[in-house]
């Protein structure tokens, strides 16, 4: 469970996150939807504690991110914006390294690595060095190392970016499975279809603020549009322009 309250973050004169609150419950998929530059990545970085908020608070499973970042990081798995891999390590070594850093050892670690390689269909690439991996293969390695410690909360920043149809489907299937296991899944996207197909709750952000939240149906109602994409455009545009006096 991830609870954020009134988060603010600015870089110099640029306000990236401007008073965002969010409740992501266990056993639910929460989608963070917004156009490019809406502040999604910065907001997620505040959630997993690599950036500190100027004000506001984040609690993950009732642990405060600012006060206890290491405990929080043990209970979340993050697929960050950057999918950087070590070109000279194999896929298996990546997953093992992160498992070790998460405190797994010996047989438990190897079992866990093996299970993830199986689940993400990585058998054929497990012992290849990651130099020259395709985007889909890189995504799998990044996912495996993010999930190696079996975190209760999963944060995915644009997880289907640059994936082909097959990989996108596999990713959706995985996200649903994680939800069905009772995990708290939070992912960001700028793709309407992506979010509407998957999410139980959508949080619509624009210019660093939450402009609407609710189930896909509720969003359609709020905007008065039958089509979700129209609703997206209507809602982001409405809040972006100054309200009429």
């Amino acid at each position: 469970m991830i609870v954020a309250r009134d988060l603010h973050k600015r870089f110099g004169s640029v306000v990236a996150v401007d008073g965002v609150s969010l409740d992501a419950a266990d056993g639910q998929i929460t989608g963070l939807l917004g156009p490019n530059g809406a502040g999604k990545t910065t907001f997620l970085r505040l959630l997993y504690g690599l950036m500190l908020p100027d004000s506001g608070s984040v609690r993950v499973d009732d642990l405060d991110v600012v006060r206890d970042p290491l405990s929080v990081q043990a209970s979340i798995g993050v697929l960050p914006d950057a999918l950087g891999l070590y070109p000279r390590l194999t896929a298996r070594e990546h997953v093992r390294y992160f498992g070790q850093l998460q405190g797994l050892r010996g047989g438990a670690l190897e079992d866990r690595v093996e299970a993830l390689l199986e689940r993400l269909d990585m058998r054929s690439i497990a012992d290849r060095r990651t130099q020259g991996f395709s985007q889909g293969e890189r995504m799998k390695v990044s996912l495996a190392r993010a999930l190696v410690h079996g975190p209760n909360n999963v944060i995915l920043d644009e997880p289907t970016n640059g994936l082909d149809v097959m990989s996108t489907r596999a990713m959706r299937k995985l996200i649903r499975e994680l939800r069905d296991e009772g995990k708290c899944v939070l992912f960001s996207s700028h793709v309407m279809q992506e979010v509407s197909a998957l999410c139980d709750v959508i949080v619509l952000v624009a210019r660093g603020r939450v402009v609407a939240r609710g189930t896909p149906d509720e969003l359609r109602q709020q905007s008065g549009c039958a089509d979700l994409e129209d609703a997206f455009v209507a809602l982001t545009a409405a809040k972006a322009s100054p309200p009429a006096a």
Partner: peptide, 17 residues
């Protein structure tokens, strides 16, 4: 190199000082 490859962010996400 670690930062330029984009692997620093995932690395620092581990619960390690």
């Amino acid at each position: 190199g670690e930062r330029e490859r984009g692997s620093l962010e995932p690395l620092l996400l581990n619960p390690v000082p």
